[in-house]
């Protein structure tokens, strides 16, 4: 297991996150449940959507209703489905709900 530092912009709070847990769960397990909104933790509900500003990660499948392939290609993803492979800077990027 390797751990990386994930910084949540713009406040700049930092969390040590193991590469065995998703970015979201890593943040949440280190007392950051208020830094990124926690939803289903399973790639379906969309509330933990973030933009990765710096760093690398691997991403598992996530709902296309919230992250299109183009979003993912531009570093916009659900933090519950991405695993850090370097230090990261992320910014919460919730998608407005359709009404």
């Amino acid at each position: 297991m390797t751990a990386y530092t994930v910084t949540v912009a713009p406040e700049g709070r930092t969390f040590r996150c193991p590469d065995t847990k998703s970015i979201l769960v890593g943040i949440e397990h280190n007392g950051g449940a208020d830094a990124v909104q926690v939803g289903c933790r399973s790639g379906g509900c969309g509330v933990c959507r973030v933009e990765v500003l710096e760093g690398t990660y691997t991403a598992k499948r996530m709902s296309k209703a919230f992250c299109t392939d183009d979003d993912v290609a531009h570093g916009i993803l659900l933090s519950c489905r991405a695993y850090p492979t370097s230090d990261l800077v992320v910014r919460p990027c919730p998608k407005p709900r359709d009404h």
């Binding site: 289903c40 933790r41 399973s42 379906g44 509900c45 709902s63």
Partner: peptide
């Protein structure tokens, strides 16, 4: 709880 697709 949530299933592995996020359905509660």
């Amino acid at each position: 709880a949530f299933d592995n697709s996020g359905n509660r």
